[in-house]
Simulated scan of single mutants.
Amino acid sequence: MPSLKSRIVAFVLRHSRKKAFATPENMQRWIAQARKRQSHQPPVWMMARHGIETRDVHGFPVYEIPPRAGSTKRILYLHGGAYVFEITSYHWALIADLADRLGYGFTVPIYPIAPEHDFHDMFGMVGDVYRSMLNEADPRDIVFMGDSAGGNMAVVLTMMMAEEGLPVPGSHVLISPGLDVSLTNPATIEAELADPWLGIPGGQEAIRLYSAGMEPTDWHISPIYGDLSVLPRTLLLTGSHDMLTPDNLIFVDKARDAGVEVELVYGEGMFHVWPLIRMPEARQARNSIVAFLKTARSLQADNDPINSTASASSKAPFIEGVASTNIA
Rank of each mutant, 00 (worst) to 15 (best):
P2N: 10
K5V: 13
R7K: 14
V9Q: 04
F11K: 10
H15V: 05
K18A: 12
F21Y: 14
N26V: 06
I31A: 01
A32Y: 03
Q33F: 06
R35K: 14
S39R: 13
Q41Y: 08
Q41A: 13
M47A: 09
H50D: 12
V57H: 09
V57Y: 11
F60R: 10
V62E: 07
Y63S: 10
I65L: 15
P67W: 10
G70Y: 13
R74H: 07
I75D: 00
L76R: 00
L76E: 02
L76T: 03
L78Q: 11
H79F: 15
V84A: 15
I87N: 03
Y90H: 14
H91N: 15
D97F: 02
L98K: 00
L98I: 01
R101K: 12
G103K: 05
T107V: 15
P109I: 11
Y111D: 08
Y111E: 08
Y111P: 03
I113D: 08
D118H: 13
D118Y: 02
D121Y: 06
M122Y: 07
M125V: 10
V126R: 00
Y130T: 08
S132K: 12
S132V: 03
M133G: 05
E136M: 07
A137E: 08
V143H: 05
F144V: 03
D147N: 14
G151P: 11
G151E: 12
V155I: 15
M159N: 14
E163H: 11
E164C: 10
G170S: 10
L179G: 00
D180M: 02
V181Y: 01
V181K: 00
T184R: 12
T188K: 00
E190V: 12
L193Q: 13
L198H: 03
L198P: 01
G199Y: 04
I200D: 05
G202F: 09
I207C: 02
Y210L: 01
S211E: 06
E215V: 10
W219C: 03
H220W: 02
S222V: 08
S229L: 09
S229M: 00
L237T: 07
L237E: 06
H241V: 02
H241I: 05
M243F: 05
L244S: 00
P246R: 05
A255N: 09
D257C: 04
V260L: 04
E263D: 11
E263R: 09
G269C: 02
V273D: 06
I277T: 11
A282N: 02
A291P: 03
F292V: 02
K294R: 15
S298Q: 14
S298L: 15
S298E: 13
L299A: 10
Q300N: 12
D304A: 07
P305E: 04
T309L: 13
A310T: 13
S311N: 13
S311H: 13
P317Y: 04
I319K: 12
G321P: 02
V322T: 12
S324W: 04
I327F: 03
